[in-house]
Every structure is written in C-alpha cells, then in structure tokens.
Design a protein around this nucleic acid. Structure first.
Lengths: 209, 209
DNA sequence: TGTACATCAGTGAACGCGCGTTCACTGATGTAC
DNA sequence: TGTACATCAGTGAACGCGCGTTCACTGATGTAC
C-alpha cells in the first residue's frame, strides 16, 4: 500500500515552465556556449522570476546535467533506430544512417552536444545517470562496429568510427565548414558525400555477408 | 629613412611578462575552458596587478586572438614538418606522422585547441590574422590529401582526413577516452593503433606510387 | 657632460554590472477529517 | 458540506563576489640637443 501525501500532489509532469526552462537553456548553450547559460538569463527568456528556476533545479549544474542526460538519451535512440536497419538494409546503408544520426544530432542540438563531451561540466559522482546515459550511447557505437566488422570488430575500429562521426559533428557545428561551404545547403550536400565516401571505404574493406 | 621615436624604445620583444601572461592564459584555458580565462585571474597567476595585462593586450579578446594565432601557426608548422616526410618516407608514414602531429598538438595545447575552432570566440573581422593562420593550417591538410590521394584528391576526401584527426583530437582531450583507457599510457597506445589502422585503410585503397 | 622630456612598464583605486544563491514570504490548490 | 492544513509554484528583496574596464598616477629608462 502506498501512503498518499497530505497536501497538494505534484502537478502533471508535462509541466510548462520546467520544459520551457530546458528549452531556453538549450538555446543559450547553442548561442554562446556554457558561459552563456546563467540562471538569470534562462529565467529572463522564459519570462519568470530569476528565482523560479530554483524551484525545478537545485542549482545551475542540475540544469546542465539534465540537458546532458536528455542529449545522450536522444543520441542513443537515434543510433538505435539507425542500427536497426542492419536487419533489412545491408551494412553500408546502416553505416550511412548511423553516421547521419550522430551528426544530425550534433546539428540539431549543438550547444548540448558540446557539453556532453566535457565531463568537467557536470560532476560524474554527483550525477550517475549522466554516465549511464553516455554509456548507452556508446554501446550503440559498439553495436555499429559489430555490424560493420562482425567478428573482426575491435576497440581500434570502434574508435575510428567514433572519431569520424564525432569529428564531422564538431566541424559541422563549430563553423569550420562555413569557410569552404558558405550555405547550409552546400554543407549538407558535402556532409552526405563525406559520409557516403567514408562508408564506401569501410565496406570495401569488409567481406560481404 | 626611418624616423626614430623620441623617447624610450620598446623593450626586447622577448618580454617576460607578456610571455608569462600568454603561458598562464593557456593553462587557464586548459583547466576550465574559455570561461576560466579572466583578465584578473591571469594577472593573479602571473603575479602582477590586474591592470598590467592591459598594457600588453587591449582587452580580453586580444589575448584569445593571440593564443589562437599562435595555435594555428604551431599546428601548421607541425603538419608541414610531417608532410615533408613524403619526400623520403612514403605515403603511409607521412599520413601517420601528420595524424599524430594534429592530435599531439591538441593534446599539448588542449585549451587553445578548443577555442581555435570556435569562431565566435574572437571576431574574425577584428582579427584578420586569425583567419590567415587558420587558412595556413588548413592548407597543410589539403597538401596531405594531395600526398595521399594524388590527382584523386577532393574536398570530400580532405574532410574525411580532417574529421578523423579532429575527432581523435577532441576525444583524446575531452576525457571521452578516459572511460575505456584510464591511464595516459593506454590512451597513447590506443591512439597509435587507431592512427596506424586508419592510415592502413586509406593507403590500401590508394594505388602505390 | 648635462638636462629636458618622451616613452615604457607598470601600480592602485574605483566604477558599475551580472551572476549564483539565500531568505522570507504568498496566493492557489488540493486532501483529510 | 466545512474547515484546517500541507504542499505547490512561484514572487521579491537582498547578499556578497568576481569580473571587465576606465582613470589617474609613478618611477625608471633612454634619446635629443
């Protein structure tokens, strides 16, 4: 039996302000990096007192941790969906899909992507679920390595895959590609060619199923 | 003919304090990212008044720009040295050397490496030499692509190379590798295997000279 | 050789601002009896 | 049906701090004449 608390129960977890705060936090991170994410600016944009965020998040680091957990979970899901193609689509198509899943995630949430891989941003001992979410995303990369290389899979090959998609994600969102490819359309096209070519190279070296 | 200024001439450009300030700035960047680099903290560590840095750098952004220019110049030099091996050492050895040059630079100056690829950190119109230094580093990467692929070189293949070494650099310095490879020795060994394997893959697909 | 003076390489005090966080409070809402 | 009360979802004022930057100053050093 569960004992009901006496007072008012917690509101619907699809709470407005909490979600709004996380949303504006993502925006701030994307616009100016971790330094631009302050409790007061988040509150300002969300249209509430600078005290209100403390109702949902004990302190600034909790917001960052929440975003990172959401980020890794989102990334892991995207990779999982892509990896599932292996059942029907063949190795190369799966690899292409997974690579795009990784890079598209980076592009869709550039600010969060950048802090996800900076462990100094949120204390690992304080937020165990951050590490857990990170591990589940990493597991999908290892699954992809298995798909591509089968029993020849190794940590070395996994790192090659990871470095490639991670590097692409970084270069796409940090503006490094903007010099060569000024418009978003050109960048997207270039990205597709790079992913396609990379996948071809790997599959070329892998014995057919 | 040059007109000598009347007063005291500028001191030896191998000035102590200026170099000291840049050095501690690199440390601060490495320790806590761009947010940790403040004029006052730099001064504090360098053992001078918080006003002294203004004597050498007009404002905070000038320090960042100076570090980025130095960084790109250093990176370009390392890549150039590696690329020169092409004359005597063969394609694969050159590729391995260049990849290590890139990643080693990231490891040696992690803080600077991170801001080099964040153009929002220093205004491009204000610091033209930042773009120029960046371009010279990028040119070495294109030279490497030429070395590896010859006339089959393309922007797509250049981006594959770049993304790989950039991704490796990021993952090595942001702590992502620390989970799988807890000690620096293990990480270095892993890095060597990854670079070696990646170079083998690329050269395998390239006709011998 | 002397001296006026321009410049160098800083020092030291002070400004206004945005920040994270603490504290005390408040009206609304729901539950227990 | 009434009412006491616990909790929710905030508000509003205030704190102390570190920051970037401006301003006014200072002793040392070198050059011009």
């Amino acid at each position: 039996m569960t004992i009901k608390p006496r007072g008012r129960p917690k509101a619907d977890p699809t709470r407005d302000l909490r979600q709004e705060l996380l949303l504006t936090s993502r925006e701030l991170l994307a616009e100016g990096g971790p330094g631009a994410l302050s409790m007061r600016e988040v509150a300002r944009r969300a249209g509430c007192t600078h005290q209100a965020p403390y109702h949902y998040f004990k302190d600034r680091e909790v917001i960052l941790a929440a975003l990172v957990v959401e980020g890794f979970t989102d990334l892991a899901e995207r990779l999982q969906v892509a990896n599932r193609l292996a059942g029907t689509q063949g190795i190369k198509a799966t690899l292409v899909a997974s690579a795009h899943a990784y890079v598209d995630f980076a592009i869709s949430q550039p600010g969060v992507f950048q802090i996800m891989f900076r462990p100094d941003m949120c204390d690992a001992t304080r937020f165990p679920d951050v590490q857990q979410a990170g591990a589940s995303a990493h597991a999908e990369l290892e699954k992809l390595t298995q798909i591509v290389y089968g029993e020849r899979a190794s940590p070395t090959l996994a790192s090659i895959l990871w470095a490639q998609v991670h590097g692409l994600g970084c270069l796409m969102i940090d503006g490094s590609m903007a010099a060569q490819f000024p418009t978003e359309q050109l960048r997207t096209r270039h990205l597709q060619e790079v992913v396609e070519q990379f996948a071809s190279m790997l599959v070329f070296m892998t014995p057919a199923k």
